[in-house]
């Protein structure tokens, strides 16, 4: 009668929860829009709309755009994390998970591990769209992977912030629009889409302090010159810092749900 509580079981349960997370992404129009549609639409929109104005042509804008749009797509997908958690809590699905003979952490971990795949999906959609528009990486595949990896890491760290918001705030819809706002402000007040030189002085200051800018600069130099510079290390440390603060806080908030 007793099922042994083992790591293989936890692993298997994690896979199931990740599968669930992906099914939800594909079935729910909101999530589908965030993860699949927005990266495509934004890449097309920015490329064709601003390409000429900012860089003279779409082709010459794409190398500037790709790092920014990659990170924005991933952050945007990450922002869905809190809303999904809160929906699961509000409609009782989480309680049902908690009454299963699985490790108590599985539901939360399932959401956040599933997030990695969601973020990967969002980032890949942006890259593929850019590729179809004519963007060609000038560095080898390992460097493209490194850029994607860094963006994913930052995105995943951000997921933990949104997870905490989802665990603490009660209203799922409010969490959704709030998360969206935060991401829009963070990405537009950065060097993701426009060269900072064109901006007013006081906005430049904000932009330079924005961790999104560090990450975009880091990704740009990885994708353009194939070098992992100081910006990349700073971005990585930022990600680590966010995780080391928000992961314990989220776990605490999760345990306090009982």
């Amino acid at each position: 009668m007793n099922i042994e509580t083992s790591n293989t079981h936890n692993l298997k349960n994690m896979v199931t929860m990740t599968h669930r997370n992906l099914l939800k992404t594909l079935h729910n129009p909101d999530n589908f829009g965030d993860v699949i549609m927005e990266p495509v639409i934004f890449t097309l929109l920015f490329g064709f709309l601003f390409g000429g104005a900012i860089a003279g042509s779409v082709q010459s804008y794409l190398p500037i755009l790709v790092p920014g749009i990659l990170l924005q797509s991933i952050l945007n997908a990450a922002s869905g994390s809190g809303q999904q958690l809160r929906e699961d809590i509000n409609n009782g699905v989480f309680d049902r998970f908690k009454t299963l003979p699985i490790a108590p952490i599985v539901p939360l971990a399932g959401q956040l591990i599933g997030d990695i795949f969601r973020l990967l999906l969002a980032g890949s959609m942006a890259l593929v769209t850019a590729f179809l528009m004519g963007w060609r990486p000038v560095v080898g595949l390992p460097m493209v992977a490194a850029a994607l990896g860094l963006a994913l890491f930052i995105g995943w760290a951000t997921s933990w912030i949104f997870a905490l918001v989802g665990l603490v705030a009660k209203n799922a819809e409010m969490i959704g629009s709030l998360s969206m706002m935060i991401i829009l402000v963070l990405t537009f007040l950065s060097n993701a889409f426009v060269p900072t030189k064109t901006l007013p002085r006081f906005i430049q200051t904000i932009v330079n302090l924005n961790p999104v800018s560090y990450t975009v600069t880091a990704i740009r130099s990885i994708l353009q010159t194939g070098t992992w510079d100081l910006h990349a290390t700073v971005a990585l440390l930022c990600g680590l810092l966010i995780i080391s603060i928000f992961m314990p806080l989220s776990l605490l908030a999760y345990q306090k749900q009982n």
Binding site: T16, E87, D88, N91, G92, V93, L100
Partner: peptide
Amino acid sequence: GQTAAIDQDLTARENLMIFARLSG
């Protein structure tokens, strides 16, 4: 529970599958 705790975004079969898998 007192209110239906099923996943709105999944189909009936998927709901059952997920919980069947989690039940071992």
